[in-house]
Amino acid sequence: MSADKKLSKALEQVKQSVDDFSERELTEELRELLEYGVPPDQAAETVIRRKGRSDPAAAAGEKKLADAVPGERGLTVEARVLDRRDRTIKVKGEPREIVSGSLGDETGVLSFTSWNEFPFEEGDAVRISNAYTREWNDRPELQVGDYTEVEEIAGEDLPPAEELSSPRDVSIRDASRAYRPRVEATVIDVLDRSGLVMRCPECNRVTEGGECSEHGPVDAEPDLRIKAVLDDGDSCIQATFPREVTESLTGVTLEEAEEMARKAMDRGVVQREMERVVGRAVVATGRVLGDNFVALDVEEPESSPEDDARELLEALQ
C-alpha cells in the first residue's frame, strides 16, 4: 500500500469515530504515526483514543501564560520572547533544528519549543495561535507545531522585556513560575559532589577519574561549586551555586580550594569546607532548570531579625 493510500485509509477510519476536528489536524497526527511505521489501523485507533480523551469542544483559545496547563490544544497567547536558543536534536537518526526558549507576559513565564523556523529575537512581542502544550518537569511547555501560526505584534499591552526578565520575589513553591525567581531561604544541606570538581573542557560535564562520559579521557579543568538544598520551611529545592557564587558565599576562592586539597591530598577537605554554609539564610536570584535552581546571585537577607521580631511581636499584641 502506498503512503498516501495508508493515510487516506486511516483518515477514513478516524473520521467515522471523531468529528469536530479539522481534517488537517487529524492528517498531521496520522502522518506522524505512519512515518514511524505504525500500521494504518493502529494509527487510526491511536488518534481516535487521543481525541476521545480530550474534550473536542475544549480548544484552549486565548490565555495568559500563567493559565496554561499541560495537554492543551488550540492555544493562543500573546507574549514576549525572553530568550531563545537553537538546538539540533536527532529525530529517527536524522538531525533536526529546533528552537527552544522562554515566553513571558505580566502573569508569568512559559517555556516553548518550536519544531519549525522561529524568526523572532529576544524582546520581540509575538502572537502564537493554535499551539499545543505538553508536560515537562511538572510544568506546561508550549509547542509550536506545523499548524501553529506565529506573528510579530506591536505588543503595547505587554511589559517591556527588561521588566519581564528582571528578578521577581517568589516563594520556593512558585520559583519555577518566574523567569528570574528571587527566593529567601536557608541553605539546610550541602550535597555530595560539592566543592572541587573537574570539568570536561569540551562540554563542561563533571568528569570522574579524568574521564568524561561523552568525550572519554580529557585534560579536565578544576571548578568550584556547591550543590545545596534551599528550604523555607514550606518547600525546598535543590540548588547549584556556580563558582563565583560559591566563592562569595564561602570566602574560599578556587585557587585556595585547590591549595587546600593539595595540602591535604584529599578533595574531601573542600567538600567539608563547603558544608559550613549549612544554616545560612540567603536571598538567591536564579533560574529554575528542570528541578534545579541555578543561583546566579546570592546575597544576605536585607532585613534585620530584630526589626522583623519587633514587627511580629506588635502584630501579636
Binding site: 536557608t186 539546610i188 544541606d189 550541602v190 523555607d232 520551611g233 514550606d234 558544608e275 559550613r276 554554609v277 549549612v278 544554616g279 545560612r280 539564610a281 537577607p301 531579625p305 530584630e306 522583623d308 521580631a309 511580629l312 502584630a315 501579636l316
Partner: peptide, 24 residues
C-alpha cells in the same frame, strides 16, 4: 541529624524569626 554546622548569632536570630512566622 543529616547536616550539622556552626553558625553565628545572626543566623540563630533569623531562625527564630522564621520559626515565629511559620508558627503564627
Amino acid at each position: 541529624p543529616e547536616a550539622v554546622s556552626t553558625v553565628d548569632r545572626g543566623e540563630r536570630d533569623r531562625w527564630v524569626v522564621t520559626t515565629a512566622r511559620r508558627t503564627i
